[in-house]
Amino acid sequence: MKKVLMALVVLLASLQTKAQILEPVHWSYAAKSINAKEAMIYIKASIDNGWHVYSQNVKDGGPVKTTITFAPSKAYTLIGGTTEPKPITRMEKAFGMDVSFFETSVIFQQKIKLNAGQTTVTGKLEYMTCNDQKCLPPAEIAFSIPVK
């Protein structure tokens, strides 16, 4: 009976290991006041070794580009678009085209005008990540960033 129980425990442990979800991108958020009326929102992707996340500026027909959508609010107004650093651009055989992406980490920035003293900026981001062997399905996550 002990052998059967032990075999069952080992089997369940191995199944649990197989069921883990692969998450090679880790997101973090921050806000910094520029002055009493403006702030900068920072959305950072920390990317596991060997993986990459695509730019906001990928042409149609390629991978899913990173898209950041801010929820409308009377407490703040977006100033311009969301900016990103210069990406790596190269031909990806899987898509048959040049694509722009980031490795290791990337910080997206959005300047806002504050219409209230304090607020919370909310929204969602959609992104896709790949390595040299495979791509994971696009993911969508919500964010909430306090601005003081």
Rank of each mutant, 00 (worst) to 15 (best):
R90T: 13
E126S: 07
I43D: 07
A75S: 09
G117F: 06
L15I: 08
P87R: 05
F102V: 01
A116H: 07
Q20R: 12
P146K: 14
S55G: 00
A30F: 03
K113T: 03
D60C: 06
G123F: 10
T119H: 05
T89K: 12
A94Y: 06
P72H: 13
G50H: 01
V53F: 12
F102D: 01
Y54G: 09
T83N: 00
N131Q: 04
T119Y: 05
Q110E: 08
Q20E: 10
D48L: 09
L5A: 09
I107F: 08
V25A: 01
A7K: 05
I21E: 14
Y29N: 03
K18V: 11
G62V: 10
L136R: 04
T82Y: 04
K2G: 15
A31K: 04
G117W: 06
V147S: 04
K18E: 12
A7E: 08
T69P: 01
A39P: 04
K124D: 07
V53G: 11
G80V: 13
K93G: 05
L5Y: 09
M91K: 13
A36H: 15
I68V: 04
I141Q: 12
Y76S: 02
T122S: 11
K32G: 06
S46N: 15
V25D: 02
Q16D: 13
P137M: 06
L125M: 15
V9S: 02
V9W: 04
K65N: 01
E126V: 15
E92T: 10
E140N: 14
I34T: 08
K93V: 07
E140S: 12
S105W: 10
G123M: 13
K65W: 00
M1L: 12
E103C: 10
F108G: 00
Y127G: 01
V58Q: 02
I68K: 02
E126T: 15
D48M: 14
S100H: 08
L15Y: 07
C130L: 09
C130G: 07
D98A: 13
L11P: 01
N115Q: 10
E84Y: 14
L22I: 06
Q118H: 06
P87A: 09
K86Y: 08
K65A: 04
A31T: 04
E103L: 12
L78I: 11
N131V: 05
N49R: 14
I34G: 01
K86Q: 10
E92C: 02
M6D: 08
V53S: 11
V121M: 04
A13E: 03
A31R: 06
I112L: 02
E126H: 05
D60S: 15
Y127A: 08
I88G: 13
V10M: 13
T66I: 01
K86C: 02
M1F: 12
G96T: 00
E38W: 03
K134S: 10
T82N: 01
S28C: 05
E103N: 13
T69W: 02
Q110L: 07
L78N: 12
A142K: 12
V58R: 00
S14C: 13
Q56G: 06
A139M: 05
F108Y: 10
F70H: 09
N49A: 15
I43C: 11
V147I: 02
T83P: 00
R90N: 13
